[in-house]
């Protein structure tokens, strides 16, 4: 369509040959970007003036967190462990439940098109919902506490691991599956011995990666009352107890870094 609105420009060479040069789309893209940026800036009340005048406040706040309040470490310990437990349990159960859902969503394994379509839709709807929103809903259903957070993390894990897993299953080489059937296996047995060995390393690696992300998410779930360390952050900021907040953030960074490097070590081994 672009070529019709702006016909390609002919360039005549000295020897009489004519080359058509397509009009560049860059100006249009830049224009759209600028318009969107300006519109968004007005919509959200973005103002450099405010930023210029008040930005120092941001750094003042951060400076107030240093040095962190080592004394508050004792109070942080329990919620931190809760956060880790929530993300561990949610990730493990979620990754396990993702298996049957992903199988049901794989067009090359399940022959019923309706089941495949429904499973895929459920997975993409689940994935769309931000974890914090599902945690919020879960607090209403399961009450305040880690249970709600665990459920929210589990739902997200099902969606994330499930999607990546069914994509893997659908891309698997079906030759081995055929061979297993010719040996006299049922479809389930053939799945166990032909498909699982091919997707298992990817599945574990995805689950580990998801778990890493879940630790970060779990840290904020407490904000809506779904257990863990998030509540403390909110309280600390509310009472302007910045050294305590600084301690929480420090502990979080250390925890996340440790978990990430351990999980990365195992993911490397899987390849």
């Amino acid at each position: 369509m672009w070529d019709k609105l702006f016909p390609p420009k002919p360039i005549a060479l000295a020897n009489g040959k004519v080359v058509l040069q397509k009009r560049s789309r860059v100006p249009l893209i830049v224009l759209i970007l600028i318009v969107c940026t300006v519109a968004s800036a007005r919509f959200t009340g973005f103002s450099f003036q405010v930023l210029w005048k008040r930005m120092h406040e941001f750094f003042t706040l951060f400076r107030a967190m240093i040095p962190p309040d080592w004394g508050s470490l004792a109070d942080i310990w329990q919620p931190l462990l809760d956060t880790i437990k929530m993300s561990l349990l949610g990730s493990m159960i979620g990754a396990l439940l993702a298996l049957p859902v992903a199988v049901a969503a794989s067009a090359n394994i399940v022959q019923s098109r309706a089941i495949v379509a429904v499973s895929k839709t459920v997975l993409s709807l689940l994935r769309t919902l931000p974890t914090l929103v599902s945690a919020l809903i879960a607090t209403f259903v399961f009450g305040l506490g880690p249970m709600a957070g665990t459920v929210a993390i589990m739902l997200f894990t099902i969606a994330y691991v499930g999607k990546l897993l069914y994509e893997q299953i659908e891309n698997v080489d079906m030759g081995a599956f055929e061979a297993m059937e010719s040996i006299g296996m049922t479809r389930i047995e053939a799945f166990r011995f032909a498909i699982i060995p091919q997707v298992l390393p990817g599945y574990i690696s995805t689950s580990l990666y998801c778990f890493e992300g879940n630790v970060r998410y779990a840290a904020i779930l407490g904000y809506v009352g779904a257990g863990g360390i998030g509540l403390l952050i909110n309280e600390g900021l509310g009472w302007r107890d910045y050294p305590a907040v600084g301690m929480i953030i420090l502990v979080l960074i250390v925890t996340v870094t440790i978990i990430e490097s351990v999980s990365e070590h195992f993911r490397r081994k899987l390849i």
């Binding site: 462990l81 437990k85 561990l88 349990l89 493990m92 305040l144 506490g145 880690p146 249970m147 665990t150």
Partner: peptide
């Protein structure tokens, strides 16, 4: 990790 979840909640 199960110890974090209280089903009585």
């Amino acid at each position: 990790s199960f110890t974090a979840v209280n089903f009585n909640d």
